[in-house]
């Protein structure tokens, strides 16, 4: 053999194919979600004042701490790097009123990270959306604190204890003065700290769509179902507003946008296929609408998503993809008939 000197003594790495990979990584996708949440966070600070940052900070920090400690105790590898705990922390705080007593926040974080996520095997294994479950546990445990809605923050004359009586959805049911539609769009109304600014949430949603982190299927099916339901049901007798306004207030009010764009699209707890996503989105919208319209709660988005989360394994089973060129085997009866002929 000529020129043996050119051949190095090499010990090549052996791996399974493919040997090249796309740019997409879990970290990058989670980072995209965090980036998409920034406009809503900024809007929230403007609407509800600096205390928002405190709630957010505690929520994110406790989620990360719980994630780290839980993995450590279970003897599993550290998963802080995938940033999913940060996303959960941000979303959990988005679903709390800005005036919540701070000691309650870590309880929500514990439920979200330890009970819902790590007990079931960590990322990808949680059966419901961790942040939403955290919110619901807080909601049923501390109903008072969780439904005390601070007034929109006045940056010129800060008044810490300004408490409003009700969110727009509550006003719809109980009567009272509604914020204008512009105020609803900009988020200048009482509510959970991250849910109010529709413009910021939509901006984040568009970013996620452009980055292809989410597909529009679930948000459209979800929001569309609520819109159709409310349009058909129409305003109840006591409500002093038209059908179109009623639908708009329902779309902009409560946590519909944040739920449809950021919570229902959580990968672990939504179906894999297009068909499945349609069924899931419509289901979320239907349950949320029913609770809003007929239930005692003013808000049904969290329950709608959690309920559909639980059905996802079944939806997935019913909507599996068919392999390329798959043909349904002829039904037995027909086959027998064909044979008989």
């Amino acid at each position: 053999m000529s020129d043996n000197a050119l051949i190095q003594k090499i010990k090549p790495t052996v791996t399974a194919s493919p040997h090249i990979k796309s740019h997409a990584t879990s970290q990058r996708m989670m980072l995209d979600v965090i980036i998409a949440l920034i406009p809503a966070l900024a809007a929230s600070v403007y609407v509800f004042g600096p205390r928002v940052l405190l709630v957010e900070g505690i929520s994110v920090a406790s989620c990360m701490l719980f994630e780290y400690v839980a993995r450590k105790i279970m003897g599993r590898h550290n998963t802080l790097g995938d940033l999913s705990a940060v996303v959960t922390g941000l979303l959990l705080a988005f679903n709390l009123p800005s005036g919540i007593p701070l000691w309650m926040v870590p309880i929500g974080a514990f439920v979200a990270i330890v009970v819902v996520k790590q007990f079931f095997g960590g990322i990808g294994q949680n059966f419901v959306n961790p942040a939403l479950m955290g919110r619901i546990i807080l909601m049923v445990s501390f109903a008072g604190a969780m439904t005390t809605w601070p007034e929109v923050y006045n940056w010129h004359a800060p008044a810490v204890d300004a408490i409003s009586s009700a969110t727009p959805l509550a006003v719809l049911k109980a009567g009272g003065e509604l914020p204008s539609l512009t105020e609803m769009l900009l988020g200048l109304r009482p509510g959970c700290l991250g849910e109010t600014c529709a413009v910021a949430l939509l901006l984040g949603g568009v970013y996620l769509l452009v980055r292809r982190v989410i597909s529009p299927t679930i948000p459209l099916a979800f929001i569309g179902t609520v819109a159709v339901f409310m349009a058909i049901a129409g305003p109840q007798d006591a409500m002093p507003l038209g059908r179109v306004d009623f639908v708009l207030y329902n779309l902009l009010g409560g946590g519909l946008l944040i739920g449809a764009i950021f919570m229902a699209t959580d990968y672990s707890t939504c179906p894999l296929t297009f068909k499945g996503k349609i069924i899931y989105g419509i289901g979320c919208g239907l349950v949320a609408s029913l609770i809003r319209y007929f239930g005692n709660y003013n808000e049904g988005v969290s329950f709608g998503i959690i309920l559909m989360n639980l059905l996802v394994p079944h939806i997935d089973n019913l909507t599996k993809l068919k392999p390329f060129g798959y043909q349904k085997p002829p039904k037995e009866k027909k086959a027998k008939e064909a044979e008989a002929k």
Binding site: K21, S26, G81, D82, Q125, Y267, S268, L272, T273
Partner: peptide
């Protein structure tokens, strides 16, 4: 790529 767990992105 860093070795992460599947999170069912589909």
């Amino acid at each position: 790529k860093p070795d992460n767990d599947c999170f069912r992105c589909g």
